[in-house]
């Protein structure tokens, strides 16, 4: 286990899809909590390393001769070892990125607009999602993937709105990765041209590096946090396309300087779009919904164009 943040692997659990409007009996009842089922397959990355690959043979079976040319250098000279540098130039996150690209293709083929919502714990992500889904009011088919280390609490809050939600428990993991989402997608019976909201693990650090295949990362910063957070945790704000400055209904009671927080976020990411929102007062939610609907229209148009091509 990582001693830095406690992240690791091997304990990921993906729950069953629950909630949603009844469509014929196959779905669980809204709000139903299903028992967690530990996955039989190894999680995102195996906890124990697979056995080391077979060594290059010194002797070729059946030929009974020593083969000094079978090492990586493919040659042998007395006094020289087979030590060599292999230039491999591979991205450490290449496997995740490849899986994310597959997710992106899968989503695009169905015209699904997927958002990856990232923030600290307690920024109001789930409340904002619940309010968003209520405002969309079934006009747009929607589904939610909830990422948390433990419990199905958030998925249950989403299901109470009538929208299906699938909970991924990352166990010791501190972020969702593309493989977890890839395994969740086929379980979800997502409608074409629908909205998929992925609420990442509440963590302003680790999820920044892991592409899930989403259209956009949306960073949520609440005004009860420090206004210097975009500078203290720059990676997330650099990775996001939209920042929601949330809980703005509380600004009169706080010394939080919203302009300063936004200026800090724009320092890290000059292209960041910022909306001020409150799930409680409803401020800014019209703009947020309009932004989502524009994204849905784009995803639909791309799917339609793909069908014609």
């Amino acid at each position: 286990m990582c001693t830095v943040c406690g992240c690791g692997s091997g304990e990921t659990r993906i729950g069953a899809l629950g909630g949603g409007r009844p469509t014929g009996g196959a779905h669980p009842r809204p709000g139903t909590t299903l028992a967690w089922r530990p996955l039989g397959e190894p999680a995102a990355a195996p906890a124990t390393p697979p056995p080391a690959p077979p060594r290059a043979p010194d002797t070729t079976p059946g030929h009974h001769h020593l083969d000094f040319g079978s090492g990586p250098a493919h040659a042998h000279a007395p006094g020289l070892s087979q030590v060599q540098m292999l230039r491999i130039e591979r991205d450490i996150l290449g496997k995740n990125d490849a899986r994310a690209a597959e997710n992106r293709t899968w989503l695009a083929a169905r015209g699904i607009f997927a958002l990856n919502l990232v923030s600290s714990p307690g920024s109001g992500k789930t409340s904002l999602l619940v309010r968003t889904l209520q405002l969309l009011g079934g006009r747009v088919p929607a589904a939610v993937i909830e990422g948390d280390q433990q419990t199905e609490f958030d998925a249950e809050r989403i299901r109470a709105t009538g929208v299906p939600a699938l909970q991924i428990n990352t166990g010791k993991g501190c972020h969702l990765d593309a493989d977890m989402v890839a395994r969740a997608l086929p379980r979800m019976e997502l409608a074409e041209d629908s909205l998929l909201l992925i609420e990442n693990v509440g963590n302003l650090v680790c999820p920044a590096a892991f592409d899930l295949g989403e259209a956009h990362k949306v960073a949520i910063l609440s005004v009860t946090e420090g206004e210097d957070k975009p500078l203290k945790y720059p990676d997330m704000f650099a990775a996001a396309d939209l920042m929601l400055l949330n809980k703005v209904d509380l600004l009169p009671y706080l010394s939080f300087d919203a302009e300063r927080a936004i200026a800090f976020a724009l320092r890290v990411n000059p292209r960041l779009r910022v909306l001020r929102t409150s799930a409680t007062s409803g401020e800014g939610l019209d703009e947020w919904i309009a932004w989502i609907e524009a994204g849905l229209a784009t995803a639909h148009a791309r799917r339609a164009a793909g069908l014609q091509a």
Partner: peptide, 12 residues
């Protein structure tokens, strides 16, 4: 942060 995941990526 997620250095353990990255280390596993290096191992792969």
């Amino acid at each position: 942060m997620h250095e353990m995941s990255l280390a596993e990526g290096v191992r792969t």
